Amino acid sequence: MTVPMGVVERIWRYPVKSTGGERLQQVPVDARGLLGDRLFAVRDAEGKIGSGKNTRRFRRMPGLLHLRSRYLEHLDRPELLDPHGTAAPDPTAYIRGYLGREDVEVAREGVISHFDQLPLSVLTTATLDWVRSAAPDVPVDERRFRPNLLVRTPPGTPPFVEDQWFGRRARIGDTLHVDFQRSSERCAMTNAAQQDLPHSPLILRAIAAEHDNRLDALATTATPGTLRLGDAVVLL
Protein backbone atom coordinates (compact mmCIF):
# COMPACT_ATOMS: atom_id res chain seq x y z
CA MET A 1 0.00 0.00 0.00
CA THR A 2 1.32 3.43 -0.94
CA VAL A 3 0.56 6.57 1.05
CA PRO A 4 0.88 10.03 -0.59
CA MET A 5 2.50 12.42 1.91
CA GLY A 6 2.89 15.63 -0.08
CA VAL A 7 4.97 17.28 -2.77
CA VAL A 8 8.46 18.78 -2.83
CA GLU A 9 8.03 22.53 -2.38
CA ARG A 10 11.66 23.57 -2.00
CA ILE A 11 15.05 21.95 -2.52
CA TRP A 12 18.09 23.23 -0.63
CA ARG A 13 21.76 22.44 -1.12
CA TYR A 14 24.59 23.75 1.06
CA PRO A 15 27.87 23.63 -0.93
CA VAL A 16 29.90 24.88 2.06
CA LYS A 17 28.78 23.38 5.34
CA SER A 18 27.32 25.78 7.95
CA THR A 19 26.78 28.56 5.41
CA GLY A 20 23.46 29.55 3.87
CA GLY A 21 22.60 27.42 0.87
CA GLU A 22 21.12 27.63 -2.59
CA ARG A 23 17.61 26.81 -3.79
CA LEU A 24 17.43 24.40 -6.71
CA GLN A 25 14.86 23.39 -9.30
CA GLN A 26 16.29 19.89 -9.57
CA VAL A 27 19.36 17.92 -8.52
CA PRO A 28 20.72 14.36 -8.80
CA VAL A 29 20.75 12.35 -5.57
CA ASP A 30 23.18 9.49 -5.02
CA ALA A 31 24.33 7.41 -2.06
CA ARG A 32 26.09 10.44 -0.53
CA GLY A 33 23.00 12.66 -0.80
CA LEU A 34 22.25 15.67 -3.01
CA LEU A 35 25.09 16.01 -5.48
CA GLY A 36 27.58 18.50 -4.01
CA ASP A 37 25.73 19.00 -0.72
CA ARG A 38 28.15 19.98 2.06
CA LEU A 39 30.98 18.77 -0.15
CA PHE A 40 33.09 21.64 1.16
CA ALA A 41 33.55 23.04 4.65
CA VAL A 42 35.61 25.60 6.54
CA ARG A 43 38.38 23.59 8.20
CA ASP A 44 41.06 24.64 10.67
CA ALA A 45 44.65 23.44 11.10
CA GLU A 46 43.54 20.70 13.49
CA GLY A 47 41.12 19.33 10.91
CA LYS A 48 38.05 20.53 12.80
CA ILE A 49 35.07 21.53 10.67
CA GLY A 50 33.50 24.97 11.05
CA SER A 51 30.06 24.77 12.66
CA GLY A 52 27.79 26.43 15.18
CA LYS A 53 28.94 24.10 17.95
CA ASN A 54 32.03 22.53 19.50
CA THR A 55 32.31 18.72 19.39
CA ARG A 56 34.96 16.13 18.68
CA ARG A 57 34.65 16.86 14.93
CA PHE A 58 33.33 20.42 14.84
CA ARG A 59 34.69 23.81 15.85
CA ARG A 60 32.34 26.69 16.59
CA MET A 61 32.98 29.50 14.11
CA PRO A 62 30.39 32.27 14.63
CA GLY A 63 29.24 34.15 11.57
CA LEU A 64 29.22 31.39 8.95
CA LEU A 65 25.43 31.47 8.71
CA HIS A 66 25.58 35.07 7.50
CA LEU A 67 27.38 33.83 4.39
CA ARG A 68 25.93 31.85 1.48
CA SER A 69 27.43 29.35 -0.93
CA ARG A 70 26.52 28.09 -4.37
CA TYR A 71 27.88 26.35 -7.41
CA LEU A 72 27.97 28.21 -10.71
CA GLU A 73 28.65 25.29 -13.06
CA HIS A 74 31.01 22.63 -11.78
CA LEU A 75 31.26 21.08 -8.33
CA ASP A 76 35.03 21.43 -8.10
CA ARG A 77 34.86 24.91 -6.57
CA PRO A 78 31.97 26.54 -4.70
CA GLU A 79 31.34 30.27 -4.73
CA LEU A 80 31.16 31.99 -1.34
CA LEU A 81 28.91 35.04 -0.96
CA ASP A 82 29.47 37.68 1.72
CA PRO A 83 26.61 38.99 3.93
CA HIS A 84 25.69 41.49 1.18
CA GLY A 85 25.51 38.80 -1.50
CA THR A 86 28.79 39.71 -3.20
CA ALA A 87 30.87 36.79 -4.44
CA ALA A 88 34.34 36.40 -2.94
CA PRO A 89 37.04 35.87 -5.64
CA ASP A 90 38.98 33.52 -3.34
CA PRO A 91 36.84 31.68 -0.75
CA THR A 92 39.75 30.75 1.51
CA ALA A 93 41.28 34.24 1.47
CA TYR A 94 37.89 35.74 2.23
CA ILE A 95 37.06 33.37 5.09
CA ARG A 96 40.41 34.03 6.73
CA GLY A 97 39.74 37.76 6.76
CA TYR A 98 36.10 37.31 7.76
CA LEU A 99 36.89 35.07 10.73
CA GLY A 100 40.19 36.78 11.57
CA ARG A 101 42.01 33.44 11.44
CA GLU A 102 44.89 32.40 9.22
CA ASP A 103 44.57 28.71 10.08
CA VAL A 104 41.33 28.07 8.19
CA GLU A 105 40.54 27.12 4.60
CA VAL A 106 37.56 26.16 2.47
CA ALA A 107 38.35 22.50 1.92
CA ARG A 108 36.77 19.62 0.02
CA GLU A 109 35.55 16.59 1.96
CA GLY A 110 38.17 13.91 2.51
CA VAL A 111 38.02 10.78 4.64
CA ILE A 112 35.89 12.43 7.35
CA SER A 113 32.31 13.17 6.34
CA HIS A 114 31.04 16.73 6.60
CA PHE A 115 27.54 15.56 7.55
CA ASP A 116 26.47 15.81 11.17
CA GLN A 117 24.41 12.62 10.89
CA LEU A 118 22.65 11.23 7.79
CA PRO A 119 22.84 12.79 4.33
CA LEU A 120 19.21 13.75 3.68
CA SER A 121 17.03 15.97 5.87
CA VAL A 122 13.32 16.34 5.10
CA LEU A 123 10.95 18.80 6.81
CA THR A 124 7.21 19.22 6.26
CA THR A 125 5.18 22.41 6.09
CA ALA A 126 2.92 20.95 8.81
CA THR A 127 5.82 20.90 11.26
CA LEU A 128 7.15 24.26 10.09
CA ASP A 129 3.71 25.82 10.64
CA TRP A 130 3.70 24.43 14.18
CA VAL A 131 7.06 26.11 14.90
CA ARG A 132 5.63 29.41 13.66
CA SER A 133 2.64 29.05 15.97
CA ALA A 134 4.88 28.13 18.93
CA ALA A 135 7.07 31.21 18.43
CA PRO A 136 4.64 33.71 16.87
CA ASP A 137 6.81 36.78 17.39
CA VAL A 138 9.91 35.28 15.75
CA PRO A 139 10.48 35.15 11.97
CA VAL A 140 10.65 31.45 11.08
CA ASP A 141 11.22 29.65 7.81
CA GLU A 142 12.93 26.40 6.90
CA ARG A 143 16.38 28.00 6.70
CA ARG A 144 16.59 27.80 10.50
CA PHE A 145 16.51 23.99 10.24
CA ARG A 146 18.64 23.57 7.10
CA PRO A 147 16.66 20.76 5.43
CA ASN A 148 17.38 19.48 1.96
CA LEU A 149 13.68 19.14 1.21
CA LEU A 150 10.65 21.07 2.36
CA VAL A 151 7.59 18.93 1.65
CA ARG A 152 4.18 20.58 1.39
CA THR A 153 1.70 18.38 3.20
CA PRO A 154 -2.10 18.40 2.74
CA PRO A 155 -4.30 20.58 4.98
CA GLY A 156 -4.98 18.94 8.33
CA THR A 157 -1.66 17.07 8.44
CA PRO A 158 -0.48 17.02 12.07
CA PRO A 159 2.87 18.51 13.07
CA PHE A 160 5.77 16.08 13.46
CA VAL A 161 4.15 13.76 10.91
CA GLU A 162 7.74 12.94 9.93
CA ASP A 163 7.90 10.65 12.99
CA GLN A 164 5.48 8.29 11.23
CA TRP A 165 7.93 7.81 8.39
CA PHE A 166 10.77 6.27 10.40
CA GLY A 167 11.54 2.75 9.24
CA ARG A 168 9.67 3.33 5.97
CA ARG A 169 10.81 3.71 2.38
CA ALA A 170 9.49 6.50 0.17
CA ARG A 171 9.50 7.17 -3.54
CA ILE A 172 10.12 10.78 -4.50
CA GLY A 173 9.33 11.52 -8.12
CA ASP A 174 9.88 8.80 -10.69
CA THR A 175 13.02 6.97 -9.59
CA LEU A 176 14.44 8.25 -6.29
CA HIS A 177 13.83 6.02 -3.26
CA VAL A 178 14.90 6.97 0.27
CA ASP A 179 14.82 5.18 3.63
CA PHE A 180 13.72 7.28 6.60
CA GLN A 181 15.70 6.51 9.75
CA ARG A 182 15.23 9.04 12.57
CA SER A 183 15.06 12.76 13.37
CA SER A 184 17.76 15.35 14.02
CA GLU A 185 18.57 16.45 17.54
CA ARG A 186 18.53 20.22 17.34
CA CYS A 187 21.25 22.52 18.69
CA ALA A 188 21.85 26.24 19.15
CA MET A 189 22.19 26.78 15.38
CA THR A 190 18.38 26.72 15.28
CA ASN A 191 18.33 29.95 17.29
CA ALA A 192 21.22 31.63 15.49
CA ALA A 193 20.85 34.78 13.43
CA GLN A 194 21.34 34.34 9.72
CA GLN A 195 20.90 36.87 6.95
CA ASP A 196 17.42 38.38 7.63
CA LEU A 197 16.48 36.00 10.48
CA PRO A 198 17.26 37.34 13.99
CA HIS A 199 18.63 35.37 16.90
CA SER A 200 15.98 33.92 19.21
CA PRO A 201 16.16 31.23 21.92
CA LEU A 202 12.39 30.72 21.74
CA ILE A 203 12.55 28.34 18.80
CA LEU A 204 14.81 25.71 20.34
CA ARG A 205 13.02 26.11 23.67
CA ALA A 206 9.66 25.32 22.04
CA ILE A 207 11.01 22.27 20.19
CA ALA A 208 12.65 20.97 23.36
CA ALA A 209 9.45 21.31 25.38
CA GLU A 210 7.13 19.83 22.77
CA HIS A 211 9.19 17.26 20.91
CA ASP A 212 12.31 16.32 22.89
CA ASN A 213 14.53 18.68 20.89
CA ARG A 214 13.95 16.74 17.66
CA LEU A 215 12.71 17.96 14.29
CA ASP A 216 12.68 16.60 10.68
CA ALA A 217 13.20 13.16 9.13
CA LEU A 218 16.70 11.97 8.28
CA ALA A 219 17.09 9.55 5.41
CA THR A 220 19.55 7.59 3.31
CA THR A 221 19.34 6.93 -0.42
CA ALA A 222 18.03 3.49 -1.36
CA THR A 223 17.83 4.07 -5.13
CA PRO A 224 19.56 7.08 -6.73
CA GLY A 225 17.55 9.40 -8.93
CA THR A 226 16.84 13.01 -9.81
CA LEU A 227 14.90 15.19 -7.39
CA ARG A 228 12.63 17.91 -8.82
CA LEU A 229 10.34 20.61 -7.48
CA GLY A 230 6.76 19.33 -7.46
CA ASP A 231 7.76 15.68 -7.08
CA ALA A 232 5.27 13.60 -5.14
CA VAL A 233 6.49 12.00 -1.89
CA VAL A 234 4.88 8.59 -1.46
CA LEU A 235 5.45 6.17 1.41
CA LEU A 236 5.76 2.59 0.18
Rank of each mutant, 00 (worst) to 15 (best):
Q26K: 14
Q26S: 14
V27E: 01
P28G: 11
V29M: 05
V29D: 00
D30V: 14
D30E: 15
A31L: 13
A31V: 13
A31G: 11
R32D: 00
R32Q: 10
G33N: 06
G33C: 08
G33L: 11
L34C: 13
L34P: 01
L34N: 00
L35R: 14
L35Y: 02
L35V: 15
L35Q: 03
G36K: 00
G36V: 15
G36E: 03
G36L: 13
D37S: 12
D37E: 07
R38P: 07
R38F: 09
F40S: 09
A41F: 06
A41N: 08
V42P: 00
V42Y: 09
D44T: 09
A45V: 12
A45K: 07
E46I: 04
E46F: 07
E46C: 10
G47R: 05
G47Y: 11
I49C: 15
I49A: 11
G50S: 04
G50C: 04
S51Q: 10
G52F: 00
K53R: 14
R56Y: 10
R57Q: 12
R57Y: 01
F58H: 11
F58I: 09
F58A: 12
R59Q: 05
R60G: 00
R60E: 10
R60F: 07
P62T: 03
P62D: 12
G63V: 06
G63D: 04
L64G: 02
L65H: 02
L65I: 07
H66V: 12
L67Y: 02
L67P: 01
R68C: 09
R68P: 00
S69A: 13
Y71S: 04
L72D: 07
H74A: 15
H74F: 03
L75C: 10
L75A: 11
L75S: 03
D76N: 10
D76S: 13
R77F: 03
P78I: 02
E79P: 06
E79W: 07
L80M: 12
L80R: 10
L80S: 01
L81K: 08
D82P: 05
H84T: 15
H84M: 15
G85N: 07
T86R: 11
T86Y: 03
A87Q: 08
P89K: 05
P89G: 08
D90V: 09
P91W: 01
T92K: 07
T92N: 02
A93Q: 15
Y94R: 10
Y94E: 01
Y94K: 14
Y94Q: 05
I95H: 05
L99W: 00
L99G: 01
G100R: 13
G100P: 00
E102I: 14
D103V: 08
D103F: 09
V104R: 00
V104D: 02
V104Q: 00
E105P: 03
E105I: 15
E105G: 06
V106Q: 07
V106F: 10
V106T: 05
R108L: 06
R108A: 09
R108G: 05
E109H: 08
V111W: 03
H114W: 06
D116G: 06
Q117C: 14
Q117S: 13
P119T: 02
P119V: 01
L120C: 12
S121P: 02
S121C: 13
V122C: 08
V122G: 05
T124M: 03
T124N: 05
T125P: 01
A126L: 06
A126Y: 03
T127E: 02
T127N: 05
T127W: 00
